Computed example of a mutant assay.
Amino acid sequence: MSSVEGSTLTREETDLEAEFSTLQHVQRPYQVVVWNDPVNLMSYVAWVFRSYFGHSRQRAHQLMMQVHEQGRAVVATGTREQVERHVTAMHHFGLQATLEEA
């Protein structure tokens, strides 16, 4: 690329190329948001949080109550790809979930 002899890139283009490459490697954090719904039992929602995310019984209960009382809860964070997988899994469990930037 720019380090090869005879390159036609200017110093400014080389700096911009390096900066863009660095930005591509920076992973912004995302979060899984589970929303309240009138369909699923609270015990089922807590069970999903325990079985899928590995939350303790107490933490799963806290998150389930947050979903129930506040309408939503952030149940996990990670890279966009990880969070997309988690959201899809929540949909397969029948829960309403979305992703958002943390």
Rank of each mutant, 00 (worst) to 15 (best):
L41D: 08
W47P: 04
D15H: 14
H61C: 03
Q96T: 15
V48S: 05
T79H: 04
L95I: 03
E81V: 13
N40R: 06
V34C: 09
R28Y: 09
T98W: 06
F93I: 02
N36W: 05
V83A: 08
V67H: 00
T8F: 10
V48Q: 04
L9C: 11
V33L: 09
F53W: 06
M64N: 01
A46K: 02
V74G: 10
F93H: 02
E69Q: 12
V75Y: 01
A46E: 01
Q70T: 15
A76Q: 06
F93C: 05
A89L: 02
V32Q: 02
D15F: 06
Q62P: 14
H25W: 05
V75R: 00
P38R: 06
F93D: 00
R57Q: 11
R11D: 11
V32D: 03
E69S: 09
E19F: 12
R59V: 03
Q70V: 15
H92C: 12
S43V: 07
L95W: 00
V34T: 06
L23V: 15
M42H: 05
Q62G: 03
V75G: 00
E19H: 10
R28I: 05
H86P: 02
V45L: 05
H68I: 06
N40D: 03
Y30G: 05
R11T: 15
T79Q: 06
V74Y: 07
T79K: 08
R28Q: 14
P38Y: 04
V34N: 01
W35P: 04
V87A: 01
A60T: 02
T8E: 14
V26D: 11
H25A: 10
S51Y: 08
D15I: 07
M64L: 07
E19D: 08
S51N: 11
G54Y: 07
T88C: 10
H92G: 14
Y30K: 03
M65A: 08
T88A: 15
Q58P: 04
A46L: 05
E19Q: 12
H92V: 14
A73W: 01
T98F: 03
R72N: 04
D37P: 10
T98V: 08
E69R: 13
L95K: 00
L23G: 06
H86C: 12
H61V: 11
L63T: 03
V83Q: 03
V75W: 01
E69N: 15
M90I: 03
V75C: 03
E81R: 10
R50Q: 11
R59T: 05
V87I: 09
R50E: 10
V75M: 03
T88M: 10
Q31I: 10
W35G: 07
A73L: 06
